[in-house]
Design a binder for these strands. Structure first.
Lengths: 203, 203
DNA sequence: TTGACAAGCGGACAATTGTCCGTTAATATT
DNA sequence: AATATTAACGGACAATTGTCCGCTTGTCAA
């Protein structure tokens, strides 16, 4: 090749890998692209790939990191804006943001989830930054609701985990594609089934 | 080898594979045993293995089939016995049976779930008999509850899917091992968080 | 400018999953 | 009993993931 990229060009290489990945993914679909393929297309050895991204899931996660960050910012903004509203309303806003995100990045998200969930040696998804942030956010909302007697007395930590579990990409895609629910219906049903019942009606 | 097993001995071979699998699994752990290893130990070619079990998940599922059947029978029995009780009580019984089952077969169950969930070509878990049975059972209970006005007006099909999703083996093992909840606490919290809120209090 | 050092590249390798096809052996037919 | 038929066995192969180590190539010191 013309340009030998080394030490100093580490950033260039990273960018090149990510760009190549993105292009191959959109061309052939996430599932049909192998790490070797990417390495070859990006003019990089497998070793280099794997030193940077321990597995395909990590690579996808990196690809998504910008999106995750964006979601996180939006979430914090939205919650700040609604600060004075009841917790129930804020939870619904959070749900909507998250499910819209899922809808938008369905395929990539499912791949990430699969690889990270299924690879034995990989750090479990529960220890990844996006999960922790989401869990924390839900947790503090639920705790606030408990304190203010807006919600039933529940274990916030536990509830947050199960809520997230019921919104995982696999089940989401299944509901959307196989069961035929529209994106809007999914949000509505989640709200009716999992959120509203947690809160106490005021009159 | 001494005895050549063929056509007529198909059953023998199946049994031999399953026995070998069980023995290797309990010796080295489910994760550390490969399909080739099993084939070799059972004096069988890979082709034979894969013709019977499309992947490791299917093999595990077969290993568990007896247990699943047993759970199914217990479930039907239990529900029949409680037929006259409120739906809420029956749902709790169902939850307990299922979570006890999860507790007992945690490792194998997680492997099945992983392989079936993650392998692209595999039939998704949602189309497997055990899932369908469980979903159906929950569905009809929820529908009954709706009709009798014991529960809030919810979409039974949707709710059943999300309830099952929140009880998947991964999250269960995480809650038990990493988060430090006891088996009993998990059941209690599930009940408080996901079941009770669905039902309407009578007075 | 030259030599030592170390960061890190990249391809060869091992392990595993899953497929394919030539061969084997059990049953049926005469 | 011999031959044809066909189910199905089993090993060789391809594909993919992830690891390891020799070699390249910058950097720093004298």
């Amino acid at each position: 090749m013309s340009d030998q990229t080394q030490r100093r060009d580490a950033n260039e290489i990273s960018k090149s890998i990510l760009q190549t990945t993105e292009s191959l993914f959109s061309k052939y679909g996430v599932e049909n692209v192998s790490m070797h393929q990417i390495a070859k297309a990006a003019n990089v050895g497998q070793g280099t790939m794997y030193r940077r991204y321990a597995n395909k899931g990590e690579l996808c996660l990196e690809l998504m990191s910008e999106n995750f960050h964006c979601l996180q910012v939006k979430t914090l903004q939205s919650l700040a804006e609604l600060k004075s509203k009841p917790v129930k309303e804020r939870m619904l806003a959070l749900l909507k943001l998250h499910l819209n995100f899922l809808e938008k990045h369905a395929q990539l998200f499912e791949t990430i989830h699969s690889f990270i969930t299924c690879t034995n040696n990989a750090k479990p998804f529960y220890e990844k930054a996006p999960y922790i942030f989401f869990h924390q956010t839900i947790c503090s909302l639920l705790e606030e609701a408990s304190e203010k007697k807006e919600a039933r007395p529940i274990n916030a930590d536990f509830t947050a985990h199960t809520l997230i579990a019921s919104m995982n990409p696999k089940i989401y895609n299944f509901l959307r594609q196989k069961s035929g629910y529209s994106a809007k219906e999914v949000i509505e049903n989640f709200n009716k089934t999992l959120l509203e019942p947690l809160f106490i009606e005021k009159r």
